[in-house]
Amino acid sequence: MRGEASRIADRVSRDSLAPKLRATAEDAWRIGNELFSVTNVLDRNIRLERALTDPSRPVEDKVALLNKLVGDQAHEMTMEILTDLVGRRWSRVSDIANAVEDFGVDGMMYYADATDATLQVSIELAELHSALLNLPVIRSGLSSDHAPAEARIKLLYALVGNKDLNKVTMRLAEHAACNPRNRRYLSTIHWLINKFSRHMGESMVTVTTAAPLNQEQVDKLIAVYSKKLGRPVHINSNVDPTVIGGMRIEIGDEVTDNTVVAQLQQLQRRVTNGMRT
């Protein structure tokens, strides 16, 4: 949890620079990638984080250090964001890396906006989250600090397979795998889904069924969950014949599984536990 100084720094910086970042349109792709790279460097160098957040150090020295870090090849918006961040006060040295990452995700969202892909990316992230729910071994592998980044990326590619995902979805998924940042992979995907949902002004509700939903069912789900959540919702209908029947509904990290296969698994666990006792 961020301290008060970091919350203020993050909020003021984002309020000031978000409109400028949005205005970069398709350049936001490059900026987001550059900020993800800086996040990775900061996470691996506590001395650098301390140097960039030291309140006693002149801002000019910090900017000079930034120039050495990113060189003259970075987008001017990337440098403007980093310069603003090193000029602010932070509760913990690691909070500056969190802020850089947040801006990197924003860059990806604004690029998605510029290419009319925001909803597609949000849906694909929700589907990735749904797919991982029943794959604990893969989830663990994607979150492992003991495996090299290359191994985690390889595992992600094996999971995705031949799916033609938007490049923003893939870049976000790769960033989460490349640098877990002391988070579980599923938690990072959930965080990204929430950021996109807030950005779009609606919540993503993923509904998994054995057969496709008809429009009447979709409309009923929209009405029910819009009322329940108090805001607009988008229904992401996911078809998975292996659930046999019923519905699995995911809203963020909240999962309500009333599918037939889930009920059978629950029954099997009860029988097994009964035999053990």
Score class of each variant (00 low, 15 high):
Asn98Lys: 10
Met247Asn: 08
His234Val: 14
Arg2Thr: 09
Val160Tyr: 01
Asp54His: 01
Glu101Trp: 08
Gly71Gln: 01
Leu82Asn: 08
Glu34Leu: 10
Lys195Gly: 06
Ile8Tyr: 02
Asp113Met: 05
Ser37Glu: 14
Asp61Gln: 14
Val239Asp: 03
Asn179Leu: 09
Asn273Ile: 07
Pro232Met: 11
Arg198Pro: 00
Ile222Glu: 13
Gly3Lys: 13
Lys227Ser: 14
Asn179Met: 08
Asp113Leu: 13
Ser37Val: 13
Lys195Gln: 15
Arg248Thr: 05
Arg50Gln: 14
Ala99Asp: 01
Asn238Trp: 06
Ala97Cys: 05
Tyr185Ala: 10
Ser91Tyr: 07
Leu66Phe: 00
Ala210Asp: 02
Asn238Gln: 12
Asp113Trp: 01
Met275His: 06
Gly201Glu: 12
Thr83Cys: 07
Ser140Gly: 15
Leu125Asp: 01
Ala210Ile: 06
Ile138Pro: 02
Ser91Trp: 03
Ser187Arg: 11
Ala112Ser: 15
Arg276Gln: 10
Asn214Asp: 15
Gly3Tyr: 04
Arg30Ala: 14
Val93Gly: 01
Val271Cys: 05
Gly71His: 05
Val233Gln: 03
His175Glu: 15
Gln120Met: 12
Asp113Cys: 04
Arg139Cys: 04
Ile138Ala: 12
Met109Asn: 05
Gly252His: 06
Gln217Met: 12
Glu60Lys: 14
Asp106Leu: 14
Gly230Asn: 09
Lys220Phe: 08
Val70Trp: 04
Asn67Asp: 15
Lys20Tyr: 09
Asp15Glu: 15
Ala177Met: 08
Met200Phe: 05
Leu186Ser: 10
Thr169Ile: 10
Asn179Ile: 08
Ser144Asp: 13
Ser122Gly: 13
